[in-house]
C-alpha cells in the first residue's frame, strides 16, 4: 500500500482522538441510562427511550443543526459554557467529539442495557442478604456481570463515532487539523481532482477500524455469556 501522507495521518489521529474522548465521556452516562432503562419503571420512560434513539433515525444533518443551535456560541447551553467555564464546542475538535458522542450514544447504550437486563436479579437479592447496600450491589455484582456488555457498547459506540460524518460537518465544519476527521477528509478528497488515491487509503483505514470494532464487540458478547454461566 502506498505511503499515508502527513495530512492523512492528521485526519486519522484526530478521528481516533475524537472517537476515544466521545466514547469515554459517553460511557458513564450510558451505563447510568442503561441501568435506568433496564431496572426502573418511571413516568416518561418510553419518551426517554425514544429520545435516546432519536439520533439513530433523525437525518444526521438535523442532529448537527440542533447541536449548533444548542451548543454553538450563541446557543443556550453553548453560550453559558463559553462564558462561565470557557468550554467552546463550535468549530473545535471538542465539538466534533460532542457530535460523535451524541450520534454514537444509542449504539453504546443498547448492549449495556441488554447485558444488565440479562443479569439474574436474584443474585442481587443474594448480595443484599449478605449485607451489601444497593450501591455496593451495583458495583460488586451488577457492573462486573454486565462488564462484557459495557465493553461491547463502548466498542460499537467507538466504531460509530469514528465514522460519523453528517452531524459533525454540520456542527463544526471541516477544518483540517481541528475538525477534519477521516470521514470529512474523504469527502473533501473525492471532490478534489487527483484525490482518489488518498481517499482510497482512508477508505481502507475506515474499513479496517470498523471491522476490528465489530469483531471485538462480538468477542465481548461471547465473553458475557460465558461469564453469566460461571465458567
Amino acid at each position: 500500500m502506498p505511503e499515508i501522507s502527513p495530512a492523512e495521518w492528521t485526519a486519522i489521529l484526530l478521528s481516533l482522538r475524537v472517537a476515544i474522548i466521545a466514547t469515554l465521556v459517553a460511557t458513564p452516562f450510558g451505563i447510568a441510562l442503561a441501568w435506568l432503562l433496564a431496572r426502573r419503571d418511571f413516568w416518561g420512560k418510553s419518551v426517554l427511550d425514544a429520545i435516546v434513539h432519536l439520533p439513530l433515525v433523525l437525518p444526521p444533518v438535523v442532529t448537527g443543526y440542533l447541536l449548533l443551535l444548542t451548543f454553538g456560541r450563541k446557543g443556550l447551553v453553548g453560550g453559558f459554557l463559553a462564558d462561565h467555564l470557557g468550554i467552546v464546542f463550535s468549530f473545535r475538535w471538542t465539538g466534533a467529539a460532542l457530535a460523535c458522542g451524541v450520534m454514537a450514544f444509542p449504539l453504546l447504550v443498547r448492549p449495556m442495557r441488554l447485558s444488565i437486563e440479562a443479569i439474574d436479579r436474584r443474585l442481587e437479592q443474594a448480595a443484599e442478604t449478605l449485607g451489601a447496600a444497593p450501591w455496593k450491589v451495583f458495583f460488586t455484582v451488577t457492573l462486573p456481570l454486565a462488564l462484557p456488555g459495557v465493553l461491547a457498547g463502548m466498542v460499537l459506540g467507538f466504531a460509530k463515532a469514528i465514522g460519523e460524518f453528517g452531524a459533525t460537518i454540520t456542527f463544526v465544519s471541516n477544518i483540517p487539523g481541528e475538525t477534519q476527521t477521516i470521514s470529512s477528509a474523504i469527502y473533501s478528497l473525492i471532490q478534489t481532482p487527483d484525490g482518489d488515491a488518498a481517499a482510497g487509503r482512508l477508505v481502507i483505514v475506515s474499513i479496517v477500524l470498523a471491522l476490528g470494532a465489530l469483531i471485538a464487540a462480538e468477542w465481548f458478547a461471547r465473553r458475557a455469556t460465558a461469564r453469566l454461566h460461571g465458567n
Binding site: 436474584r122 437479592q125 442478604t129 455496593k136 461469564r227 454461566h229 460461571g230
Partner: peptide, 20 residues
C-alpha cells in the same frame, strides 16, 4: 429495616453463588 442491615444469612434453594 432494609435487607442489607438485618444481619441475616439466607441460603436459597438455588444457591445463587456469584458466577464471576
Amino acid at each position: 429495616v432494609p435487607t442489607y442491615r438485618r444481619r441475616i444469612g439466607y441460603v436459597f434453594q438455588d444457591a445463587r453463588l456469584f458466577p464471576h
